[in-house]
Every structure is written in C-alpha cells, then in structure tokens.
Simulated assay, not measured.
Amino acid sequence: MAGKKRARREPELEFRNTALSDALQTQDMAAVAFALRHGPTVVPLLRAGARDDPRDAGEVWTYRDPESGDLALLLFSDAAHKPESLPPTVALQSPAWLRAFLGRHREAVTTVFFDIAGPHPMQASPDDLIAALDA
C-alpha cells in the first residue's frame, strides 16, 4: 500500500446546542440564558454566506406577521427541529453573533421564538435575551 494516501475525513459539524435543547425541555430561562452564552444557536438563512469571506454570515431569515407586521426571529437548538417550510439553509452562530444581531435589530424584532415547531417551544423578547447574553 505504499504511495497510497488516505483521505482525511473532516469531522462533521453538528448543528445543535444540546444545553439549549435541555433548557427548553425544562422551560428554565436561567438555563436557556446559560446555554445561549456558552454555545451556538442554529439560525435559518435566506441566503448562505460566501465561503471565501468569513465576514459574510449570510442573510438571516425572519418571519413577518402579515396582519400585524411584527417581525420574529426564529432560533433552533437543533437543525432537526427546523420546520421543512422554512428555507433549507442554516448557520451555526456564536453567542457574540446573536448578541450583535439582537442589538442591531432590537427595534425591529418584536419577539424571538426557540424551536417554534417543538418539541419544546419557547419565546422571549429581544431585550430579555440581550440581558441574558450580557449577564
């Protein structure tokens, strides 16, 4: 087998935050805050970021209520919890990214839903999440 190179397999990126999933199961806001401060969040994207540009995180998909005009940010503890009806692309975003996004869009986003289709949905205001991330 001389001269034969083995293909090196990159470890698969897991699009989940187990601590967030556990916190949502118990509906414990303190545990949700801890999970958000110390782990990633799965975010649906309308457009994926450019692979060659680390500054391009893509375009986040948000939901606008057609009757009220309210804008909601949908976040997931696991990509498997994202409904099929949402755009197929997701990103795994850091706590710093989430804090910056909420700070930049806190006037426009009226609510944030976690795992909206289950198994353990929860909702919070952007201000509550910013306070949790800043704690």
Rank of each mutant, 00 (worst) to 15 (best):
R16K: 15
R16W: 00
R16D: 08
N17V: 07
N17R: 07
N17A: 08
N17I: 05
N17C: 01
T18V: 15
T18A: 15
T18N: 11
T18L: 15
T18K: 15
A19Q: 14
A19C: 08
A19S: 14
A19G: 08
A19T: 09
A19I: 05
A19Y: 06
A19K: 13
S21G: 11
S21F: 06
S21K: 11
D22I: 05
D22W: 02
A23H: 04
A23C: 00
A23N: 04
L24I: 03
L24G: 01
L24V: 05
L24P: 00
Q25M: 12
Q25N: 11
Q25V: 03
Q25A: 15
T26V: 10
T26W: 01
Q27I: 02
Q27L: 07
Q27F: 02
Q27R: 14
D28S: 12
D28A: 12
D28L: 01
M29R: 14
M29V: 13
M29H: 11
M29I: 11
M29D: 14
M29P: 08
M29C: 06
A30T: 13
A31I: 04
A31Q: 12
A31V: 02
V32S: 04
V32Q: 08
V32M: 10
V32C: 09
A33R: 04
A33M: 00
A33D: 11
F34G: 07
F34W: 09
F34E: 15
F34T: 12
A35Q: 09
A35D: 05
L36S: 05
L36P: 05
L36G: 02
L36R: 06
R37Y: 01
R37I: 01
R37G: 03
R37N: 09
R37D: 02
H38G: 11
H38N: 15
H38R: 12
G39D: 01
P40F: 00
P40W: 00
P40T: 13
P40R: 13
P40M: 10
T41A: 12
T41H: 07
T41L: 08
V42Q: 06
V42N: 09
V42I: 12
V42L: 09
V42C: 07
V42W: 00
V42F: 02
V43W: 00
V43H: 02
V43Q: 04
V43M: 11
V43D: 03
V43F: 04
P44H: 08
P44V: 06
P44I: 07
P44L: 03
L45W: 06
L46I: 07
L46N: 14
R47F: 06
R47Y: 07
R47D: 07
R47P: 06
R47V: 03
R47C: 02
R47M: 08
R47A: 03
A48M: 11
A48W: 01
A48R: 12
A48G: 12
G49K: 01
G49I: 04
A50H: 13
A50N: 15
R51S: 13
R51C: 10
R51H: 10
